[in-house]
């Protein structure tokens, strides 16, 4: 009666499909997505994240439970769906990851080195940031995405993100738009959503953070942007920088209104 669920099993099945031109790649990919979503362990990572949220840490030995994610200290319900937003105490727009870092270094008095030592985890060494993010995001299930758009800095972040999205640079002259600017295009077999349009990006912003089968880990939007720039052959974006938050703000505002349906499961 012991059943093992392995991402690898689903992957092998998909790879065994004959790749003839008659096969609708998009449909088969969707079928596979559905299969991996059914066996997704994302919720189990949420439990680990919740324990970390409540864990007393740092020189003051306090948990993150007093952290204000925008809806008041300690309020996690529906907080993720209303990010990024402007925070007066930091006088800047923050996404979830940036805000968590802020709480680690202020509320918990942890050093920046300590708080940033494992921003991106792997199967051997999970990341506190990723586990916390997946827990917080899970508390927004069903809540429509509604990032801040009224404060002047929120508007500036959107506009900067929009310009950055189309900004070509790096060793290969790529912008985000090089791959995510045109409908029905793919890299190898992977279809690419048009992220500059609401219909292309709504489902995307509503499913990050996500469990990634290929990493056997949960990953956040900061990671997604970071790995895109790696593949774009740019230098490395700084975690939580104004540029990365601006891109998240741009994407989330473009996809606003979509009920949060994550944490998702992706290839």
């Amino acid at each position: 009666m012991l059943k093992t669920l392995m991402g690898g099993a689903a992957l092998a099945l998909a790879a065994a499909l004959p790749l003839h031109a008659q096969v609708d790649i998009r449909k088969e990919t969707q079928r596979w997505q559905q299969m991996i979503a059914e066996g997704s362990p994302a919720e189990l990572f949420e439990i680990e994240g919740e324990a970390l949220w409540k864990k007393k840490q740092g020189p003051k030995n306090v948990s993150l439970e007093g952290c204000d994610l925008g809806q008041g200290p300690g309020v996690v319900k529906a907080a993720y769906a209303q990010l990024p937003k402007y925070f007066a105490d930091a006088d800047r727009v923050m996404d979830l990851e940036t805000r968590l870092l802020h709480c680690m270094t202020t509320l918990q008095s942890r050093s920046p080195q300590d708080a940033t030592q494992r921003l991106y985890g792997n199967a051997d060494r999970p990341s506190e940031m990723e586990l916390l993010s997946v827990y917080i995001a899970g508390q927004s299930r069903g809540v429509p995405m509604a990032p801040g758009t009224r404060h002047v800095k929120e508007r500036e972040a959107f506009e900067l993100g929009q310009k950055l999205f189309f900004h070509r640079a790096g060793a290969w002259d790529f912008s985000c738009s090089s791959c995510h600017g045109e409908a029905d295009k793919r890299i190898r077999m992977q279809y690419l959503p048009v992220m500059s349009q609401p219909e292309g990006v709504r489902k995307i912003v509503a499913t990050w953070p996500s469990y990634l089968v290929r990493n056997a880990q949960v990953k956040t939007m900061q990671w997604r942007i970071w790995d895109c720039y790696r593949q774009m052959r740019w230098p490395e974006p700084v975690f939580g920088s104004e540029a990365t938050v601006a891109i998240t703000q741009y994407l989330t505002v473009t996809g606003q209104g979509e009920p949060y349906a994550g944490p998702g499961t992706k290839r």
């Binding site: 640079a169 720039y229 490395e236 974006p237 700084v238 920088s241 104004e242 540029a243 990365t244």
Partner: peptide, 14 residues
């Protein structure tokens, strides 16, 4: 300001 050199990916790329 918001990107940094890493490995073979230098700031000249910007």
């Amino acid at each position: 300001r918001d990107f940094k050199a890493r490995g073979i990916a230098g700031m000249d790329r910007l």
